[in-house]
């Protein structure tokens, strides 16, 4: 059998910590950050019945992190009586987005066609974003289920970005950047985002410049949003696993440094 190296023990330790954290049901209290509050206030302050475009710009791999985020945003929007147009610019996000929108619509007794429509996937994201700026019905002549665009009352008055209050990009990668660089820069639409934690610092400069209006990110963002909505959800539950993993990594960094300093002392003493 191959001899185990230090990294194998690091991996094993992380696995044990996360599994243990998932088995324990402890609710951690968290404080709501200013950026999550801004996202909440943005959706909350829109007039009832506003049309929002929600774009599912993520792959299947990010579902465990993205789903709690997407659910909180959708729940808040439906709770406030907003109407939602769903699209997806990555093929793998299409089915997931449709399921999430249907699931939350049922929770709030929303009617498809009147309160929400899911237009589905369009390949070539930059082209799709620019094309919707010119004409959404020409970009998506049919909804996800193949019914004509003109059939839905919600879409009667929606021609392009001028007719939506804003775009919410739910992303695990850099696709939100394209919404900012093309939809915001060229057509002036308000762009907000719900993103994977690892991508948050990528968007910080856009938040600072105001090109990205608001952002909520990662499991922590989802947990904070759930707290604001006063609902339970997988965000708060996932926070325990995330916190445990973070503590584990901190301990690993400390151990690594202790070993490094000890070795350095040993070498300088020799």
């Amino acid at each position: 059998m191959k001899k185990l190296e230090s990294r194998h023990y690091v991996f094993l330790g992380l696995f044990v910590v996360i599994v243990a954290a998932m088995l324990i049901n402890v609710k951690l209290d968290i404080k709501v950050s200013a950026e999550t509050q801004k996202m909440y206030d943005y959706i909350d302050s829109l007039p009832q019945g506003s049309v929002l475009m929600v774009s599912f710009d993520h792959e299947a791999s990010a579902v465990p992190e993205i789903k709690p985020l997407a659910l909180t945003i959708l729940r808040h929007a439906f709770k406030k009586g907003h109407r939602l147009i769903g699209v997806s610019l990555l093929a793998e996000g299409t089915g997931i987005g449709y399921r999430l929108m249907q699931e939350t619509a049922r929770e709030y007794d929303k009617v498809y066609g009147r309160d929400l429509v899911y237009l589905g996937f369009k390949p070539q994201y930059i082209a799709a974003i620019l094309s919707m700026g010119e004409s959404i019905p020409e970009t998506f002549p049919e909804d996800y289920l193949g019914r004509p665009y003109t059939q839905f009352p919600l879409l009667d008055s929606v021609e392009n970005y001028d007719d939506v209050a804003g775009v919410i990009s739910i992303a695990d990668g850099s696709l939100t950047t394209h919404w900012i660089e093309y939809a915001r820069a060229r057509y002036g639409v308000t762009v907000t985002a719900a993103v994977a934690a690892v991508m948050m610092t990528t968007y910080d400069p856009y938040i600072g410049s105001g090109q990205l209006h608001a952002m909520v990110g990662g499991l922590r963002g989802a947990a904070e949003y759930e707290k604001l909505l006063k609902i339970g959800g997988s965000g708060r539950r996932g926070m325990l696993a995330q916190t445990s993993a973070h503590v584990y990594v901190i301990i690993m960094i400390i151990i690594g440094n202790v070993i490094y300093i000890a070795e350095r002392k040993r070498k300088s003493g020799a």
């Binding site: 690091v10 991996f11 690993m252 960094i253």
Partner: peptide, 12 residues
């Protein structure tokens, strides 16, 4: 997640 842990252990 595992690679972040091992990279942090080695790199920081």
């Amino acid at each position: 997640a595992f690679f972040v842990a091992s990279a942090s252990f080695r790199g920081f």
